[in-house]
């Protein structure tokens, strides 16, 4: 049997771990503030967090709560599959603002690098030393339903012990994420 070790949900300025609320801010608090406050609440030193775009900050936070665990687990072979609907559109627009006018044409490398949705997987892998396979998928509904083929195959066939999968979106200052960490017990082929 495959065992869900933990799941993390972020919605409406609240963070839930295994359905238990672990962090909340007033819902009126908009934009980056929630992400930054939730980060400060973790009390970890990781200055790179402030360089990330909102999608990466959100993914970082969800993964951080997913991996806060008493046992030391080797996550090198963990597989990470994430999805969303809007890709990196918010950051795409930010990059485009920098090149819209030829008289103020200053593309920023630290913005451009986040115009790929899979960068969030890279940030999570760097933080947690994960070296397994990673892929980013696009899907309209935010519950990984469209990606059932991927899950089914991964669970049954991929040579890995842990699977992190989930969906994350930052749209109009609303941040929602749902990450799950599975331990895979495979039948030997």
């Amino acid at each position: 049997m495959n065992h869900e070790i933990r799941n993390v949900k972020i919605a409406g300025n609240k963070i839930y771990v295994n359905e238990v609320e672990v962090f909340a801010l007033p819902h009126e608090m908009k934009g980056d503030a929630f992400l930054n406050e939730a980060f400060k609440n973790l009390e970890i030193s990781y200055p790179k967090f402030y360089k990330m775009d909102n999608l990466c900050k959100l993914g970082f936070l969800a993964a951080e709560h997913l991996f806060i665990t008493a046992d030391k687990v080797d996550h090198r072979n963990t597989i990470v599959f994430l999805s969303n609907k809007n890709s990196s559109l918010q950051t795409d627009r930010n990059h485009f603002e920098k090149i819209r006018q030829s008289e103020s044409y200053f593309p920023s490398p630290s913005i451009f690098v986040y115009t790929l949705p899979n960068i969030v997987i890279g940030e999570i892998c760097i933080r947690h030393k994960i070296m397994g396979e990673g892929a980013f998928f696009l899907s309209e509904n935010h519950n990984f339903e469209d990606l059932n083929d991927i899950l089914e195959y991964s669970v049954n066939h991929l040579p890995c012990k842990y699977l992190l999968y989930g969906d994350l979106e930052t749209e109009n200052s609303e941040h929602t994420a749902h990450f799950r960490l599975l331990e895979l017990k495979k039948k030997h082929h």
Partner: peptide, 12 residues
């Protein structure tokens, strides 16, 4: 990436 960003800063 910060190094590249410093190049942009000097120019801008």
């Amino acid at each position: 990436i910060d190094a590249l960003e410093l190049i942009v800063l000097l120019e801008k």
